[in-house]
Design a binder for these strands. Structure first.
Lengths: 205, 205
DNA sequence: CAACGCTTCAAACAAACGTTTGAATTCTAG
DNA sequence: CTAGAATTCAAACGTTTGTTTGAAGCGTTG
């Protein structure tokens, strides 16, 4: 994050991601961010314009890739002539899991994402819905085909619950801690497995 | 909230609850709180000592009652010789639902509670676990009896997922909006029904 | 090397922050 | 009615906040 191989912009984004995850958008100051990134305070306003726009860029950097991954995984799942419910769930969850495990700062970002929900910030919600709403639409359509016994309202309710459970579990808000012998990857993969099985059961009824 | 029938202390707690829900703990300032409560700025430090202790009191005021309600409902559910899984889930969820619907500011508080999860704040987590951890233990024991086919680890995973879904749904982080013809009460009760059915299916597998 | 645009920098800005103070006011006993 | 405690109040404390400024440094291009 402070690695001088990375550009000033990247270092700021990395430090902001980490601090927003740990202290929230209001709780993390630009001085804390720039000091962690080892850049000058004014660099944020030079490169991003304002703190609000920095927050948006923290989202954009990850979500473009995450949502592309989710759509690609969905496409692969639906290539199968008789896709299983679990496959579509995995198409939604696994790219987020990979983000957590493989990308530097990915785990922090997932917590930032969960914070965005809690913020209830209209500006932020509009930004997310404008830029990434179509992804959720495509998944909703796929689930609708696999669950023809559910009417539209019933389906939306359940998807909303699934989204909540996924967000919460990925951000490890829960109380379950990784066991000492267990690797971070093992732990996360187990969490995803449980999540998929649980959500599938709840969706099917 | 600004009603002069209420004491200074109560007005501060009410205003703080509302503003913490909307802007977070760091995002809501004591000046905003005292101005909304129509009390003097210094009143917070006079009555509570500090902002941190005000935050704790916002939790304590509601959680004492909420958790007492949950334990009472659990006891009633277990009075039945063959209690259903749905009854225990309802014992956990319905008191939170009542808080949302019947208590002034209850809906705001549920969102404050969801923020506490997002905060990952060690001090806050310890406070909550010290004061209300025993409630979760009792529910876990009740679920364990009803789901003997699940080993301890499996059960804890699923309860963690349920807790996440409940928190998320109660704080209405989701995208589902109340229909125009529907009352807040109807809407919330539907949400709780869906939640119980979904969670029961996921727990039973 | 000179001139240029891009980036970094230390310093300062006004505003807002949590907290403290000491005097004014209100309430409560005796 | 009065003494003393409890509460409210305006004002100020020293920090920290996001943002702006103008000069200094940098690498590229003519």
């Amino acid at each position: 994050m402070t690695d001088p191989r990375f550009s000033t912009k990247q270092r700021i984004l990395g430090a902001a991601e980490d601090l927003f995850a740990r202290r929230g958008f209001a709780g993390a100051s630009l001085r804390q961010v720039t000091s962690a990134a080892k850049v000058n305070l004014a660099a944020v306003n030079y490169h991003f314009g304002s703190k609000d726009r920095l927050i948006e860029e923290v989202f954009r950097r990850r979500l473009d890739e995450l949502n592309a991954g989710r759509l690609a995984a969905l496409k692969r799942a639906l290539a199968n002539p008789r896709p299983e419910l679990e496959d579509v769930l995995a198409a939604f969850i696994n790219p987020a899991l990979e983000l957590c495990l493989d990308k530097e700062g990915g785990a922090a970002f997932v917590r930032v994402l969960a914070r965005a929900y809690a913020e209830h910030n209209e500006r932020l919600r509009k930004f997310l819905s404008d830029n990434y709403g179509h992804v959720l639409k495509e998944f909703a359509a796929a689930f609708a085909k696999l669950l023809p016994h559910l009417d539209k309202e019933e389906l939306y309710w359940r998807l909303d619950i699934v989204a909540g459970a996924v967000t919460y579990a990925m951000a490890d808000f829960g109380v379950i801690k990784r066991r000492s012998g267990q690797s971070e990857r093992e732990f996360r993969e187990r969490a995803a497995e449980h999540l998929i099985r649980f959500a599938a059961a709840g969706l099917r009824e």
